[in-house]
Amino acid sequence: MGRRKKIHKEAKWPRVVSLKEREEVLSFWEERFGIPKEIFQDYLLLSTAKNYWLFIAPPDLRPLQNLKVQTVGLLFTRRVSRWLKPTSTALQRFGHLATKNVLELSPSQLDRLRREKRLPFEAEVEEGYVIIKCEGKVWGCGLYAQGKLISFLP
């Protein structure tokens, strides 16, 4: 007999993060990209393992927590070792509100980045995660460090 894995229906539901954790994640977005915390005031922040999800704050969450869910909300931010990393999905949705650490690429630079996954790049931005933009469209997340831009955009 194999070991039977216990499934709790509550366990499928992501956890609502503490105020402290919420503050940490939203402060990261505000400090890194200049996107004010108030933008997310109508949303809950939920957590599964190393992922944070954004989900509209319902009038009452409890009845929904009795459902066996597959996904809840939009994948927002990940914890990568000790860093927070915004997802491309979330940046495509909210990145247009950013006021800093945005890299505007030409179409040929974007093509090359998508093909080669890293580019030599010099820009007046802080090292760390950046928003990749091209012709007014936000494509997602990149990592700018040591004169290189790295991204795994498909």
Partner: peptide, 28 residues
């Protein structure tokens, strides 16, 4: 469905996998 919700950036939806005719009661 999940791929389309992600692609369109929807944050107000959750997804479930029930047979519709026995979807559980409890949500108003």
């Amino acid at each position: 469905l999940v791929a389309n919700l992600k692609r369109l950036g929807v944050a107000c939806a959750l997804t479930t996998l029930y047979r519709g005719e026995v979807f559980p009661f409890g949500v108003p």
